[in-house]
Computed example of a mutant assay.
Amino acid sequence: MKHSIIFVLVFSLFVMSANAQIKPGDQLPKLTLTDVSGKSMDLQPIKGKVVLVDFWASWCGPCRVTNKKLVKLYEKYKIANLEIVGISLDKDKSKWLAAVKKDKITYMQLNDPEGFEAKSAIAFGVEQMPASYLFDAAGRLVAINPTEDQIKNEVNKKK
């Protein structure tokens, strides 16, 4: 009997987490988060733009390395049709802001200060970082943790 109850609980958790994670073809979730100036911003598709949503935190070493790569990618492709939205899961706003400044991030930065329990992390199914999600110009998810080539290919697609 104990094994049956444990199985049901584990299976229920698996189903709930599977339903929370977005899948290719899904639309960009609608969320409202705070930007670096403290203003509430809606996360929504940017008409005609490819959007890369990147989850990170100031304390995550691999995230900080990725930030440097994304800064260069953004500088190269922002004129085309690429937008990058960084979502920090930092609980300490001052550490997040210091990392944004140190990493010289110029693309949109938002904060969801509840860590992996944050609404945005749950909506996207973030279980580790860095984690990124590539949306096409119509706002549909086309890749999870895309390569740089996948991002470039999506940006360079003919409209």
Rank of each mutant, 00 (worst) to 15 (best):
H3Q: 15
M41D: 11
A99T: 07
L52A: 03
Q128M: 15
A20K: 03
K30A: 15
V50F: 01
V65R: 13
T147C: 06
F124L: 05
I87K: 01
F7D: 13
L110D: 01
V15C: 10
P45D: 06
L73N: 00
D42K: 14
Q150N: 09
S94A: 12
Y74F: 05
P45Q: 07
A123F: 09
L31A: 03
F55P: 00
L31G: 03
A143S: 11
N111Q: 13
A118M: 03
E117N: 14
K30P: 08
F116N: 00
E114Y: 15
A57Y: 02
P146L: 04
S4I: 15
V65T: 15
A18M: 13
V8T: 15
K72A: 11
G25V: 01
G125N: 02
P130L: 04
R140W: 09
G25D: 03
N19D: 13
I6L: 12
S120Q: 04
L28C: 06
M16H: 13
P62L: 09
V100Y: 07
L70R: 05
L141S: 06
P62I: 10
E114H: 14
V50M: 01
D112I: 07
F124C: 01
K93V: 11
V15M: 09
P45V: 07
G38F: 10
F55D: 03
A98E: 11
C63L: 07
K91G: 15
E154K: 06
L82K: 00
P45Y: 07
A123E: 09
A57S: 07
M16A: 14
F135A: 01
I144Q: 04
C60Q: 02
K157E: 04
D149E: 15
P29D: 02
Y133N: 07
S120V: 10
